[in-house]
Simulated assay, not measured.
Amino acid sequence: MTTTTAPNRAPSLAASLADLRRLVTRTLRHEARTLDALMVNIALPVLIMIIFVYVFGGAITTGSSGLAYIDFVVPTVLLMAGGYGAALSAVNIAEEMTGGMIDRFRTLPISAWTLPAGHVIASLVRNVAATACALTAAVLLGFRPNASATDWALVLALITGYILAVSAIAMLWGLLVTSPQAAGAFSFVVIFFPYLSDGVVPAETMPPLLRGFAEHQPTTPMVETLRALLLDLPLGDAGWLSAAWLTAGVVLSMPIAAFLFRRRTTT
């Protein structure tokens, strides 16, 4: 008498989407229990904004833009709020890769892509909420946006795209390094990168070499786009440049991260 074993089949799309929903819920619940991390995610950009406005604001001019400093800097702080939390996704995936959780997931009939995708989606939900908190604080400090309903929709799309791109790059970084400590370094890069843009001080006031970098790095067109949408200013080329940078970040990072994840979980 012989027996046959049914071949292993990949989960269906419906089953994978159900697994993805569970993994997103799991990640959000896990992060909700780490109140210290949530507080830092929300409080750090707000504290930075308060320092900029009340400590440095009186000494910093906004150059040819003629904006009040709070109007000048708030778009940058919104990117910091979303980007800092999204960058912490690198720590989350690194902890699971090195802490034994991946070995448990290997025993379950789930698609490999759902785990990193779950982290990215959870990051998106969490950090859009954190950015909304930062915007609320900005309004309480005196920021007065002049945006239409369409402008607000585009603001949400840009911030969502930024968080998605940073989360994707964070996944890639978290899979490249070998420890959560090394993964955590990415968050410092993300939160300080806007300082070298047109977001905190006008690029026109910087030395020539630094000015050239500030004018052509990814954060500058995103900040300029947010300023234009929130304050009803001319948009120029900033909109399509932002879309190009964000698309490139997602399109280049996601396939490489997926490849690294498969490689590290099948060896």
Rank of each mutant, 00 (worst) to 15 (best):
Pro45Trp: 02
Thr27Trp: 05
Leu231Ile: 01
Thr27Asn: 14
Gly118Val: 07
Ser64Phe: 13
Ala248Leu: 15
Thr150Ile: 12
Ala168Arg: 08
Glu95Arg: 15
Ile50Lys: 04
Ala18Phe: 11
Thr131Trp: 08
Thr5Asn: 01
Arg104Val: 10
Ser197Tyr: 01
Asn127Ser: 09
Phe188Ser: 15
Leu260Asp: 01
Ala137Trp: 12
Ile110Ser: 06
Leu260Thr: 01
Tyr162Arg: 02
Val251Glu: 07
Ile256Gly: 04
Ser89Asp: 13
Val189Arg: 08
Gly161Ser: 02
Cys133Ala: 15
Arg227Glu: 01
Ser12Trp: 00
Pro234Lys: 02
Ser64Met: 08
Val251Phe: 11
Ala59Tyr: 09
Asp103Ile: 05
Ala81Met: 04
Thr225Cys: 07
Gly63Arg: 03
Ala170Met: 03
Ala238Glu: 07
Asp71Pro: 03
Ala59Trp: 10
Tyr162Thr: 06
Thr5Leu: 09
Gly212Met: 06
Met101Trp: 13
Thr34Gly: 09
Asp198Met: 01
Val139Met: 15
Asn41Gly: 12
Thr61Glu: 15
Val200Gln: 10
Leu196Tyr: 09
Gly199Lys: 02
Thr76Leu: 00
Ile102His: 07
Gly236Ile: 06
Thr3Trp: 12
Ala168Cys: 13
Met97Gly: 13
Asp237His: 15
Ser89Ile: 13
Leu241His: 09
Ala94Thr: 06
Leu233Pro: 04
Gly82Ile: 03
Leu23Ile: 10
Glu215Ser: 12
Thr267Pro: 12
Thr61Trp: 08
Thr205Cys: 02
Phe213Leu: 11
Trp173Leu: 10
Val155Trp: 00
Thr114Gly: 12
Leu38Glu: 08
Ser179His: 05
Phe105Asn: 10
Val55Ser: 05
Leu164Ser: 07
Gly100Gln: 04
Ala147Arg: 01
Glu215Ala: 09
Phe259Arg: 15
Gly212Gln: 04
Trp152Gln: 02
Val177Arg: 00
Val74Cys: 00
Val40Glu: 05
Arg262His: 11
Gly85Ala: 04
Ala87Phe: 06
Leu235Arg: 14
Ile50Gln: 08
Tyr195Glu: 12
Leu172Asn: 02
Asn8Phe: 14
Ser123Leu: 06
Leu135Thr: 09
Arg126Cys: 11
Thr34Lys: 14
Ile48Gly: 10
Leu78Arg: 01
Arg263Ser: 02
Leu67Cys: 00
Thr5Asp: 02
Ile191Cys: 00
Leu67Asn: 01
Ala130Gly: 09
Val74Trp: 01
Leu140Ile: 07
Val120Tyr: 07
Trp173Gln: 10
Ala15Phe: 06
Ile48Ala: 09
Leu196Ile: 10
Gly199Phe: 00
Ala137Gln: 12
